[in-house]
């Protein structure tokens, strides 16, 4: 059974690569700066956010742009990856109706192509680290851990959303609202410490994406994220669980997709 699965995956590896390539190519096609936007966009929005939040609210922290950038980059990947995965089944309805292809290829490729774009945009972060003199140490290497969790969480959410949205299209609008909620509880552009200790701190504590961003920031600033283990264990468990649930849901319902697209 498992061997058969692996064989099918091998056979469709080229398709997966083609779909990832297609996602990246088509995202910036017909724009003059093309793939450069992957770098320009986070730079520009970080400029705006820095201007607004340090200029107007008088934040003293010199590395504030790095703080914003880390939060924004990770959130953007989660939001665009999960959205693309959610819409992937309907976007490829023409193919699904005609030819047999293992269907998980579609959400998987959507998350992957967004991850590639995200990985490219991390160059901006490296640049920012030099400009604002945040120098790496050994703890910086642990940044890989939140990135893995982020990928799994996005994939899991994407699988769940893509399954549900085949049956209920309203979800596409509902998820926009959900993402807004998630964004505001991610502390992208304000100080998280004050928020966690406030009365509504629990909202932050149950948001796995916020925990991932927090861990990533700790690593980038060269701190030990394991100093508060709960903030690492919770998102790790949630991201693995989301993939498990996503895969099971998708597998159980994938044969019914064709009747609803």
């Amino acid at each position: 059974m498992l061997k058969k699965q692996i064989d099918t995956f091998k056979r469709y590896r080229f398709l997966l690569r083609e779909l990832v390539k297609k996602g990246i190519k088509l995202k910036y096609r017909r724009s003059y700066l093309g793939i450069l936007w992957t770098l320009l966009e986070p730079i520009l929005t970080t400029c705006v956010l820095t201007l607004v939040f340090s200029g107007f609210f008088h934040k003293g922290d010199k590395t504030f742009p790095v703080y914003i950038l880390t939060g924004r980059l990770l959130y953007t990947f989660f939001s665009s990856g999960s959205k693309a995965a959610m819409k992937s089944i309907r976007a490829h309805a023409g193919m699904i109706k005609k030819v047999y292809v293992p269907k998980y290829i579609y959400p998987l490729s959507s998350v992957l192509f967004n991850f590639v774009i995200f990985a490219i945009s991390l160059i901006v972060l490296v640049g920012a680290l030099f400009i604002f003199k945040v120098y790496p140490n050994w703890w910086t290497l642990t940044a890989i851990l939140p990135l893995i969790m982020l990928f799994l969480l996005t994939l899991g959410a994407g699988m769940i959303l893509s399954t549900l949205s085949v049956f209920f299209r309203d979800l596409e609008y509902l998820w926009d609202v959900g993402l807004m909620m998630i964004m505001y509880t991610c502390a992208i552009f304000y100080d998280d410490k004050a928020m966690i200790s406030s009365a509504n701190g629990w909202v932050f504590k149950i948001n796995p994406l916020f925990a991932i961003i927090k861990d990533f920031r700790a690593a980038i600033y060269g701190e030990n994220m394991f100093a508060s283990p709960a903030w690492v264990i919770m998102p790790a468990v949630v991201s693995v669980l989301s993939v498990v649930i996503g895969v099971l849901m998708f597998k159980k319902n994938q044969d019914k997709f064709i009747l609803h697209i």
Binding site: Y12, K22, L26, G94, M95, K98
Partner: peptide, 24 residues
Amino acid sequence: AGFDSQYTGAENIYLYSAVLGYSK
């Protein structure tokens, strides 16, 4: 029906063959 309209003919040849399960 499986073509992508924004893609060129050449790109679609690769995409479509991949859908049919062929290698690069």
